[in-house]
Amino acid sequence: MVMFEQPEEEEGAVAQEENTFEVTEAIPDVELFGFKINTRSIQVFSGVWVAYSHVDFSGNQYILEKGFYSTSADWGSRDTRICSVQPVRLAPADGNRTRNEVSLLIFPNLFLTAPCSMF
């Protein structure tokens, strides 16, 4: 996935070179990698990603599937703030579940498990 930074609007300034951020793993705070939190657009090359409006995978969540998101409205936000991102990965299979299931915690110790075909 590649994130394209929203350029700062400075009156009378020469256009800045566009800053991009290539993401290949979970990033809890994009600013630690020199990327500002205002994102102009996103290109997802493979997989499914979750972008968050706050650091440490918190705040509003935006599901990003393969494709190009030219504006924040394309990923479902009213603003350009993305502070952390992580890929959606399958959990390792254990003896009780298959790899193609999604488990949701409904109440403490009560899980709803359903087949999943999105991966």
Rank of each mutant, 00 (worst) to 15 (best):
S77D: 05
D74H: 07
N109Q: 14
E31S: 13
L64C: 03
A73M: 12
G67N: 01
F21Q: 02
F35A: 08
G76I: 07
V14Y: 11
R81S: 10
E18L: 06
E31G: 06
E11R: 07
E8K: 12
G95N: 14
R89Q: 13
V23E: 02
T20M: 02
R97N: 15
V88L: 15
Q86A: 11
D74I: 01
T20S: 01
E11I: 04
E9C: 02
F45A: 10
L105Y: 03
H54G: 00
F57D: 08
I106E: 11
S70G: 10
E9M: 00
K66E: 10
S41L: 00
G34S: 02
Q6E: 15
L112G: 06
A51G: 15
D79E: 13
I42D: 03
C83F: 01
D94H: 15
V44I: 14
R81L: 13
L104S: 11
E9A: 01
G34E: 00
A114M: 06
E9P: 00
T24M: 06
A51C: 07
E17C: 00
V2C: 12
E65V: 08
V55C: 08
Q61E: 15
I82T: 09
F4R: 02
T113K: 12
K36F: 03
I82M: 09
M1S: 04
N109D: 15
N100A: 08
M1Q: 05
I27T: 04
C83L: 07
F4L: 06
D29T: 04
V102F: 06
G47C: 05
K36P: 02
P115F: 07
R99P: 13
S117K: 10
V44C: 04
N60D: 09
I37Q: 07
M3T: 09
S84Q: 05
I82C: 07
A13T: 06
E31L: 08
P87R: 14
P92N: 14
G12W: 02
F35L: 10
F107V: 05
Q6R: 14
Q43C: 03
D79R: 13
E10H: 05
G59A: 04
E101R: 08
S70M: 08
E17I: 05
S103M: 12
C83Q: 14
Y52N: 07
K66G: 02
V30T: 07
M3L: 15
F35H: 07
G34Y: 00
G67E: 00
V14P: 03
S53E: 01
E22H: 10
E101W: 02
E8F: 05
F57R: 04
E17T: 07
S41G: 02
R81I: 15
I63A: 09
E65K: 14
E11Y: 09
E65T: 11
R89V: 14
L105G: 02
A51Y: 04
T24C: 06
E9N: 04
Q16R: 08
Q86P: 02
L32P: 01
S117L: 09
E22C: 02
N60C: 09
C116F: 11
F119R: 10
I63E: 12
S41E: 03
C116A: 09
M118I: 09
V48P: 05
F68Q: 11
